[in-house]
């Protein structure tokens, strides 16, 4: 059973940092560039996150995430620099399409902001165990029922993907057409997804009963079997991050 979590199970100085501190990092490194509006600061934040991800040994898992956004970013650059009205300064021309300098500058600021947000989030997700994230939030007051939901999705999705493979093989061997023109393919959708969906929904009844049998609805303050991760430098690191935020606000105001 492969987990769908992006977590990279390694040891590094980034992994040692506790979830809340990383969360603060993420907020500061997203908010500060937006407040100051300086592209240079955005680029800087993005590079810092990248270096941290590399030093945590998680670059390989970052690649697919980045690849997913590549297409979108490309289309942003093309459309923003070539199709938005009101620009004059033509930088270059491909066929009938003019690319404007102002548009390209605007597009690059969008791209930087996007990458900055993407990497800041990725840093957390790649280097924090999901159970540690959820339990940290639970200790801070997140309902344990919601915590349960988040963690169980990580297991349920790979299971369903497995069932999905079995069922689609079975349906195909029964002669269901999954290739051809769009109508043929669209018609295949319901017979494929139906059984998986119905199965999983029927299973919810017994799982819910099993949870009740394990005191899921108890209204007491929980204890935790996993030990709470402690980070030695949490106070100084958090202070530095806060300071960064204050400086960027001050920069904006001055």
């Amino acid at each position: 059973m492969t987990s769908i979590s992006l977590y990279v199970d390694k040891k590094s100085i980034v992994h040692d940092v506790d979830f809340l501190t990383k969360l603060i990092y993420c907020c500061v490194f997203i908010v500060a560039p937006i407040i100051t509006g300086a592209v240079i600061l955005g680029t800087f934040s993005f590079l810092v996150s990248l270096i941290l991800i590399i030093s945590a040994g998680a670059l390989k898992k970052l690649m697919p995430i980045a690849a997913l956004s590549l297409f979108v970013l490309l289309s942003v650059i093309i459309i923003q620099s070539a199709f938005i009205q009101g620009y004059h300064d033509v930088l270059f021309t491909i066929g009938p399409v003019h690319f404007y300098r102002e548009g390209l500058i605007h597009a690059s600021s969008i791209v930087v902001r996007f990458l900055d947000i993407l990497l800041a989030f990725s840093l957390i997700v790649l280097t924090t165990h999901p159970a540690d994230m959820v339990e940290t939030l639970q200790r801070k007051g997140l309902s344990h029922r919601i915590g349960y939901v988040i963690l169980s999705v990580f297991q349920i999705i790979p299971q369903m993907a497995q069932t999905m493979k079995t069922i689609s093989d079975a349906q195909r061997s029964r002669g269901l057409e999954t290739e051809g023109n769009i109508f043929i393919r669209a018609k295949a959708f319901l017979p494929l997804i139906g059984p998986v969906v119905i199965n999983s929904l029927i299973g919810t009844r017994e799982r819910a009963m099993a949870l009740e049998a394990r005191a899921f609805s108890a209204e007491v303050k929980h204890t935790y079997f996993r030990d709470e991760p402690v980070y030695r430098y949490k106070t100084p690191v958090r202070l530095i991050l806060l300071l960064l935020l204050i400086v960027s606000i001050a920069w904006r105001l001055l």
Binding site: R145, V153, M160, A161, I193, V196, S200, G203, T204, L211
Partner: peptide, 19 residues
């Protein structure tokens, strides 16, 4: 509790639909 357990199933259905 049944509703709570429905949520992960719903999310998984979203995911499978997309796949």
């Amino acid at each position: 509790t049944a509703s709570i357990v429905l949520i992960p199933a719903a999310v998984a259905i979203n995911y499978i639909g997309k796949l």
